[in-house]
Write a protein that binds this DNA or RNA. Structure first.
Length: 906
RNA sequence: GCGUGCUUAGCUCAGUGGUAGAGCAUCUGGUUUACACCCAGAGGGUCGUAGGUUCAAACCCUACAGCACGCACCA
């Protein structure tokens, strides 16, 4: 047997252990296995991303589930991979191209091979579609996979041989096939619609990718003259004067008495000067502003709808990149949109048509990627009319157990999910982005460039003149198939639907809801029951990790700690365990490095406890304190009874995904019950090896370590594997702890509860005695004589007295028959414990101490008496409770009597 | 405006009806057969406010306040 190294050094064993697991193919998921399947889904991280605390949280939880599932006899599939993250990656490369000198060598090489003229500005337009895609591939290959290596450092037990990328050939085909299928079913359509346009990225984005931000804006009030009544003006409030060139009407509420007579007349738009009709529309809020709205159908979603209702012309005065395109107003033409805003106000002012400018708080939609305000823009895009909305709703929110086939943890996310589905809008799925899955639609045009034929197909259709749609799909239109498009038929048969999805609630719409819809609509095999169509059975929503000030962690704030640095400093196990202890089910987490330090400290504690054991001789990996001819001490019974409780707690916590409950329970068992209590007591016997063996103490320790290591393995995979192997629990076959059985609660309690209780009383006595010493500031290293007057029914033997004596650091613990006076004492479960002090005791100090104890006892008595004197309470409360109260009251009474006597004797 | 979550010790948070808890921080003592990433002890809380239900409320209900987030937004 090997002894453990003197100190636990996080970061030293991880790589070695992980490569051993990989070498043994330990995470392989066998589709032909006869074991029950357990499969898990996690959002594939961006291929060029790096590990964030969010990933650490998700993946730790996922890994805990995976490892425990293996240990409970499941065949586990955790299929890893990365997402191409279309727009995000393309934008990143475009940005990198601005500093060509700093490009990774492989990318630079690729770029050079294009032989662009030396003075070419490196925009994607200048580079061209085909070459740009080549460049991004090169970038992806250079930068990609970093996060995969980082996940390994964290200990993730993924089946790496199955690693997928959302642009893999097979995956790409699945995505396009799904598009074709939905097109043929009539769900996918192309239309000229108002969409969210990002003027920075030059693409449309979906509603879900627009982030509303409060802004300090200005509200401009301007006045337009009435064409039919020269000299009469209407006042109009707007936040966007720069779009007035595109106004094609002025609208008022049909029942607004102030303006009713104007309906049908015309207002004079100041520039370019023209008459625009005054129209009635219910949409207008009489209360807001002046009650008059300028209608700009080309540049506002609501105005567009008003325009549709009234057949208004649509005038577009803005370029794709957010500049004014209106040659008729040369002062503004070509100007950037926000500069044009000020300029337009100036123009109005110079014409005497600007009434006032008010400060105004409103919300403006920003593009998540481009970080600029989105521009409502009319454009031709592909849309998905979502199928299976009702079914998706029922699958999660139905009151009928049969229909509710997906469980959310915590359940309150069901409401958010339902709200989205109930108000769902068609999904703008096309992106004017090159990096991604190209829309599998082909057009044939006539000589006037009009589309005459449209075909959806992965392959180019037969015949001449077919052109593919230039757009690609939203990234989420590929990742929404992740759960099943990553599997082949054989794998799917075994592992689909998956068991659990772990993710943050921030992508509940972008990903979770859409996966459910896709699963219900697309999964082949219509003969199966509904539950077989869902992509996953349980969804566990993690909380968000925030910084110490409660802010979201983000790159721009720079408030996100580097997980790799944390791993280096505290070990992957410390990071994982520390995080799990503070991650209650689905609540946001305020991150504090101290908590990771605690995780590391715990690993150290575990290590040292095991090291301590190795110093006492050979370990028996199969030790069973119950089975052999041991005369188990009450202390052992106490420990084993606690262990049994722990198993139950952990089992129940796992069933509810309460990782903090499970980890905290193990923590306090190991630290307090096992180390501080049991091992300290056991030390008393360690000088007598024979008695140790006979009493089963060593067997109890080995049995406990054996259980604790396995209990902890999902949380702390590395250190548990290391100790497991080093201490020989792996046996001669050298079995990894990965493949051992997870400790389950025992059906029948083996430990003697009565003896366990007796030990509990001894422990409490010990605590009281230590407190007494501390109260009189007797240094730990100073031996004193203490005396004990046993209570009548105290169960205690000489061995117990020896133990107590040792742990109380007494030179002698003397049993006395009569109560002592003028001697500091405490009342303990087994009797009165005295600390006879040499010389004179400080009467005032002792009085103060006794009075404090008296007050506490009196408070206890009062509280319980209040209950016991309440007749209604006695009548209605269960007898068991009443007995407890009585018991507390009796003890308090007894204590009060004794304390009063001591006080009198002072 | 609608919805969700939170409000418990100085800090970070557990605690789903019956004696208010942990870690950190603070203070005191400590070279004990592993561990100073440690050991032993102490102080510190009218559980956001106000009502209600109940024999009994930190916990269930209602209202309110504050904070956070999500959705929808009025030009």
């Amino acid at each position: 047997m090997l002894e453990l190294a003197k100190a636990y050094e996080p970061g030293k064993v991880e790589d070695r252990i992980y490569s051993r697991w990989l070498k043994n193919d330990a995470f392989h998921a066998d589709p032909d296995s006869t074991k029950p399947a357990y499969s898990i889904v996690i959002p594939p991280p961006n291929v060029t991303g790096v590990l964030t605390m969010g990933h650490v949280l998700n993946n730790t939880i996922q890994d805990i589930l995976a490892r425990r599932a293996r240990m409970t006899g499941h065949e586990v599939l955790w299929l890893p991979g990365t997402d191409h993250a279309g727009l995000a990656t393309q934008t990143a490369v475009e940005k990198a191209l601005r500093k060509p000198d700093q490009l990774p060598p492989t990318v630079k090489e690729m770029l050079d091979s294009f032989k662009l003229p030396a003075d070419t500005k490196l925009t994607r337009q200048n580079i061209g579609r085909e070459n740009m895609i080549k460049l991004i591939w090169a970038w992806t290959k250079d930068r990609g996979g970093i996060i995969i290596e980082q996940l390994k450092k964290l200990g993730c037990s993924c089946d790496w041989k199955r690693e997928r990328f959302t642009l893999d050939e097979n995956y790409l085909k699945e995505v396009q096939q799904v598009f074709v299928e939905l097109y043929n079913k009539g769900y996918m359509y192309r239309g000229l619609r108002m969409c969210n346009w990002c003027p920075a990225s030059l693409t449309a984005i979906s509603d879900e990718e627009v982030e509303m931000k409060p802004q300090k804006s200005k509200l401009y009030t301007m006045r337009y003259e009435i064409a039919e009544e020269p000299g009469r003006f209407v006042e109009i409030a707007t936040t966007r004067p720069e779009t007035l060139m595109a106004d094609t009407a002025v609208a008022v509420h049909p029942e607004d008495k102030r303006y009713m007579d104007l309906i049908g007349k015309h207002a004079i738009r100041p520039f370019p000067k023209t008459n625009i009709p005054i129209i009635p529309d219910d949409y207008i809020d009489i209360e807001f502003g002046t009650g008059v709205l300028k209608v700009t159908p080309a540049h506002d979603k609501n105005d567009f709808e008003i325009g549709q209702r009234h057949n208004l012309p649509i005038i577009n005065i803005m370029t794709a990149d957010g500049h004014i395109d209106c040659p008729d107003v040369p002062e503004l033409h070509g100007m950037e949109r926000f500069q044009a805003r000020d300029k337009a106000a100036e123009l109005l002012d110079s014409m005497g048509q600007l009434v006032k400018i008010d400060a105004y708080d409103n919300n403006v939609g920003f593009s998540e990627r481009g970080k600029v305000p989105i521009e409502p823009r009319l454009s031709e895009q592909w849309f998905l009319k979502y199928p299976k909305i009702k079914e998706s709703l029922e699958a999660v929110c139905s009151n009928e157990t049969e229909k509710k086939v997906i469980r959310f943890f915590p359940t309150h996310w069901e409401k958010t999910y339902a709200h989205w589905l109930e108000n769902i809008q068609d999904w703008c799925i096309s992106r004017q982005v090159w990096w991604g899955h190209r829309i599998p639609v082909w057009y044939r045009k006539n000589t006037q460039e009009e589309i005459t034929e449209t075909v959806a197909s992965i392959e180019r259709p037969q015949g001449e003149g077919w052109e593919q749609d230039p757009d690609s799909m939203d990234t989420w239109a590929s990742s929404w198939l992740w759960a099943y498009a990553t599997m082949d038929e054989r794998t799917r048969k075994k592992f689909y639907p998956t068991s659990v999805l772990v993710t943050g609630p921030d992508i509940i719409f972008l990903w979770v809801a859409r996966m459910i819809i896709a699963g219900l609509e697309l999964e082949p095999g219509t003969s199966r029951q509904l539950k077989d169509h869902i992509p996953f059975k349980d969804v566990y929503f993690t909380g968000l990790i925030r910084d110490g000030k409660g802010r979201k962690m983000s790159k721009s704030l720079g408030n996100s700690p580097d997980p790799l640095m944390l791993i280096k400093k505290y070990g992957a196990d410390g990071l994982r365990f520390g995080l799990m202890r503070i991650a209650p089910k689905g609540q946001d987490i305020r991150f504090d490095e101290k908590q990771i330090e605690e995780g590391r400290n715990f690993a150290n504690k575990l290590w040292n406890a095991c090291r301590f054991r190795t110093m006492q001789g050979e370990i028996d990996p199969t030790a069973n304190p119950f089975n052999e001819n041991h005369q188990l001490s009450p202390f052992a019974h106490h420990l084993l009874a606690s262990l049994e409780d722990l198993l139950t707690t952990v089992e129940e916590a796992f069933n509810k995904y309460e990782f903090n409950t499970a980890s905290s329970a193990i923590y306090s068992f190991v630290w307090d019950t096992f180390c501080s209590r049991f091992l300290e007591v056991a030390k008393a016997d360690f000088n007598n090896k024979d008695s140790l063996t006979r009493s089963g103490t060593l067997a109890t320790i080995d049995y406990t370590i054996n259980h604790v290591l396995r209990l902890l393995h999902p949380f702390m995979p590395f250190i548990t594997e290391e100790i497991w192997t080093e201490l020989g629990f792996c046996g001669t076959s050298n079995t990894s702890i990965l493949f051992t059985e997870y400790p389950q609660p025992q059906k029948k309690l083996n430990a003697n509860q009565k003896l366990a209780h007796r030990t509990q009383q001894l422990y409490e006595t010990l605590d009281r005695g230590r407190a007494l010493r501390a109260e009189f500031q007797i240094p730990t290293n100073q031996k004193v004589v203490m005396k004990l007057k046993l209570a009548q029914n105290a169960e205690i033997d000489d061995h117990d007295i020896d133990i107590l004596s040792g742990l109380l650091h007494t030179s002698e613990l003397k049993i006395v028959k009569t109560a002592l006076s003028k001697t500091p004492s405490v009342i303990t479960p087994i009797g009165d414990l005295y600390l006879p002090l040499e010389g004179v005791i400080d009467v005032d100090q002792e009085r103060a101490r006794l009075e404090k104890e008296l007050a506490k006892a009196q408070a206890d008595l009062e509280r319980e008496n209040k209950k016991l004197q309440n007749e209604a309470m006695l009548k209605k409360a269960p007898a068991e409770k009443v007995n407890t109260w009585r018991d507390i009251a009796d003890k308090a009474k007894d204590k009060i009597t004794k304390l009063k006597k001591s006080l009198d004797n002072l």
